[in-house]
Write a protein that binds this DNA or RNA. Structure first.
Lengths: 131, 131
DNA sequence: CACTACATACAAAATCTTTCGTTTTTCCAA
DNA sequence: TTGGAAAAACGAAAGATTTTGTATGTAGTG
């Protein structure tokens, strides 16, 4: 019998909801629903289902307050950023982060300040590393 | 009546196939199929279907040679890298590329070499910039 | 020619994702 | 206490993606 592998990545809609939850810190289904993009028209039950799925998959947790659940993210935005970047790097940049940065820097006119900021970050990182 | 919007992004499997085609430059269904990951077991007709879908969606084109189609990418890897980075930046980094790079270099998995490579890239960029 | 090997074409099964409707539960105010 | 408003639970419809089987076409060979 085959064990269903734990989901690593969020689906489109799951990411949409996690993003709102990250913004909120924590919130009920109704809170999250209210924060969706203006045009977005989604039944309350649909939103509730998505939150329940997110919990099943282990991306969020909930505690009951009165009769309603309050959700909080278990997966942090930072962690998911890292995970997504790693995935993109593997799938599209031959696992060479430098080429990813190269493409990014070529595409966007990053300000001198932004570039300097990043470089300082690198310097600090390189100093602290002992390996 | 609603016009079906042109697909912007590749699905999981489509990306898998495009990646092989980018490596090959051009190739038949059989060529691409042969290049898939070792464990990957997929019927020939499945591969053919995927290539046909890629063509329908405008990501590749084909020319008939004898009785078989030879496919070539219309969407370049570079262009798709750009598109994907932009999407990731929007969806997960508030559209600020600098924070994306910051997260990337914060990742502990990066080797010293990779970090140095990125730094040199930035140095060159900073020297050439005139603004 | 007609046989064979291999290609394309396409409908549809299988699976995963997204959305919703109905039923059940729960709190609270009258 | 009980009736109503709002939430949760859940099955399943609707939709998209992935995979396959069957039918059909075509080039080349004896």
């Amino acid at each position: 019998m085959r064990q269903k592998k734990k989901a690593e990545f969020l689906t489109e809609v799951e990411l949409e909801f996690m993003t709102r939850l990250w913004e909120l810190g924590e919130g009920t289904v109704r809170d999250v629903l209210a924060k969706l993009a203006p045009g977005r028209d989604l039944a309350y039950t649909s939103a509730a289902t998505i939150m329940r799925i997110l919990e099943q998959k282990g991306f969020v947790t909930s505690t009951k307050q009165g009769k309603t659940f309050v959700y909080r993210a278990l997966l942090s935005k930072d962690a998911y950023q890292t995970r997504s970047l790693k995935d993109l790097s593997e799938k599209l940049f031959d696992n060479t982060p430098a080429s990813l940065v190269a493409r990014l820097v070529d595409d966007n006119d990053l300000s001198k300040d932004a570039l300097n900021e990043i470089r300082e970050l690198l310097d600090r990182r390189l100093k602290n590393d002992t390996d």
